Amino acid sequence: MKTLYMVRHAKSSWEHDVIDHKRPLKKRGNNDAILVSNYVSKEVKKPKKIISSDAVRALTTAQYFKKAFNITDENFEVNHTLYDFSGHKVMDIIKNLDDSLNRVMIVGHNHAFTSVANMLGNKYIDNVPTCGFVEIQFDDSQWNTISTGTTVQTIFPRDLK
């Protein structure tokens, strides 16, 4: 069995004069990332690896989950390919995960994450909100053979407030 945890980056700020890739989290984003990561770390099994987009807002969000789950540096990866908005590159990363990893968390962006959650899960999600968490399980032993899995749960910041 394979389990995929997907986290959309927390709320980012548009107040800074920086390129999209460098946008930081705003105060609400930091607060939501703390809230959701601490809650999720008590509700689900620890991922074997966290892979994050290298965009500042996603990487900062991933660091909160890394801390909450006590993930080591060797099990934390930054991958520019997750800076994807269509979902095609996200699917490539998922399909090429190491089969020794049964639980993986990826941290990235919309519209890709909502699209992938709906392609792979069996429950329609209108929109994965900022700092939204989605868990999908697959009855497969290899990542490259996964198709439709079971959307086990969603945890969104609004659910915890």
Score class of each variant (00 low, 15 high):
residue 11 K to A: 10
residue 106 I to C: 12
residue 50 I to Q: 10
residue 114 T to K: 06
residue 56 V to W: 01
residue 147 S to K: 14
residue 56 V to H: 05
residue 116 V to M: 13
residue 149 G to V: 08
residue 70 N to E: 09
residue 30 N to P: 03
residue 149 G to K: 02
residue 35 L to Q: 12
residue 103 R to C: 07
residue 51 I to A: 08
residue 85 F to G: 01
residue 109 H to S: 02
residue 59 L to T: 11
residue 121 G to H: 03
residue 61 T to N: 03
residue 90 V to L: 15
residue 41 S to L: 00
residue 48 K to D: 15
residue 127 N to M: 09
residue 85 F to C: 07
residue 24 P to K: 04
residue 25 L to M: 10
residue 61 T to K: 01
residue 45 K to P: 05
residue 11 K to P: 02
residue 134 V to P: 06
residue 3 T to E: 10
residue 56 V to A: 10
residue 59 L to P: 04
residue 91 M to P: 09
residue 20 D to N: 14
residue 39 Y to E: 08
residue 128 V to H: 14
residue 51 I to F: 04
residue 23 R to Q: 12
residue 56 V to F: 07
residue 31 N to M: 13
residue 45 K to W: 01
residue 115 S to V: 15
residue 111 H to T: 13
residue 158 R to I: 10
residue 55 A to P: 02
residue 11 K to S: 07
residue 18 V to W: 12
residue 113 F to N: 10
residue 46 K to R: 14
residue 29 G to I: 14
residue 25 L to G: 04
residue 119 M to P: 00
residue 69 F to I: 02
residue 91 M to S: 12
residue 37 S to T: 04
residue 1 M to R: 08
residue 61 T to S: 03
residue 26 K to S: 08
residue 161 K to G: 06
residue 112 A to C: 08
residue 141 S to V: 15
residue 133 F to C: 09
residue 19 I to S: 14
residue 159 D to L: 14
residue 107 V to H: 09
residue 7 V to D: 04
residue 131 C to D: 06
